[in-house]
Nucleic acid binder design. Structure first.
Lengths: 158, 158
DNA sequence: TGATTGTTTGACTATTTTTGACTATTAATT
DNA sequence: AATTAATAGTCAAAAATAGTCAAACAATCA
């Protein structure tokens, strides 16, 4: 169900910059409880995944999902670096890497390397420490990408 | 039993690049306990044998087995993985990365990302712990470089 | 045959999703 | 202004999955 609602909203977002819904209507459409919509939004439309969400209650209330717009790769990297902050969970970190891959800022191999580096199992097991270590690592990686020319093999003298 | 389930999954994988199952369904199909499926997967669908496994718990959960292609450069990577062992200093780790770059096994960007991840300043400050963390990270990265998934569609949110 | 290795089982744990009761906010009506 | 209606948000319990681990059992090896 979550996946279906997510797919529906993303499809609309392929055409548009943002989408505005009435929570109860979508819940009815998919025959689920209204709070399911909140669950979808909280788990699938996070800032790490590149979305902003606004809402209003009361009569004429709505939920609006907005795709975060960036100018270029550099802007995206800077935005992500801000989002990372000085602590980040495994899940959020992986969302960030995934987003960079989807936006063609990093290659699949680079994404894999970075994803591996975000994995919980590599760290100490102390949640607070790990989230700090992870944010240091990811942030430094992204800072590096800012100053790096895109992909070139050393022997590729083309 | 293990052999039968293995054969079943491999047969499906002859037709497809990947297979997605619901653990309890397969267990029912073969009249065994669900954890038997984990055993099959852990013993027969390892990365060394050319398979990648992903899963999700909870509602709509699944286990997905993906065929991967073993890449060239295996020997070099395997050698490096051995060298790394379960503890490695910053200096040695950086040498390993440098060597991979010089041998054209990784790109400059990849090298930079990996070098960043080896840097002492990112870790806890406890030498023994850091060397262990670093080796875990570098080793896992190299293991990942050995395999490649077949044409996974990217960002297809339709 | 005794030791070793591989398989099966199930109790317990971990994760993710679904649900609904209760709360908070805003707009409309009195 | 106060009250009521119409929204959306929160939170925790329940349900629906998958994972782990060790004990029991089976097969194979020396």
């Amino acid at each position: 169900m979550t996946d279906i609602i997510e797919a529906y909203l993303k499809k609309v977002l392929q055409q548009q910059e943002q989408v505005e819904i009435r929570r109860s209507e979508i819940a009815q459409l998919f025959d689920c409880v209204p709070s399911q919509i909140n669950y979808v939004i909280n788990t699938r439309f996070t800032i790490q995944k590149g979305y902003l969400v606004e809402s209003k209650r009361g009569g004429g209330g709505y939920i609006r999902i907005i795709k975060v717009q960036v100018l270029d790769d550099l802007d995206m990297l800077n935005t992500m670096i801000e989002i990372i902050g000085d602590s980040i969970t495994e899940k959020d970190a992986k969302s960030v890497v995934q987003k960079l891959y989807e936006d063609d800022i990093i290659t699949k191999r680079e994404a894999k390397l970075m994803l591996v580096a975000m994995d919980k199992s590599l760290y100490t097991g102390e949640r607070v420490i790990d989230n700090r270590l992870r944010s240091n690592l990811l942030r430094t990686m992204l800072v590096n990408l800012k100053y790096e020319e895109p992909n070139k093999r050393k022997a590729d003298h083309s």
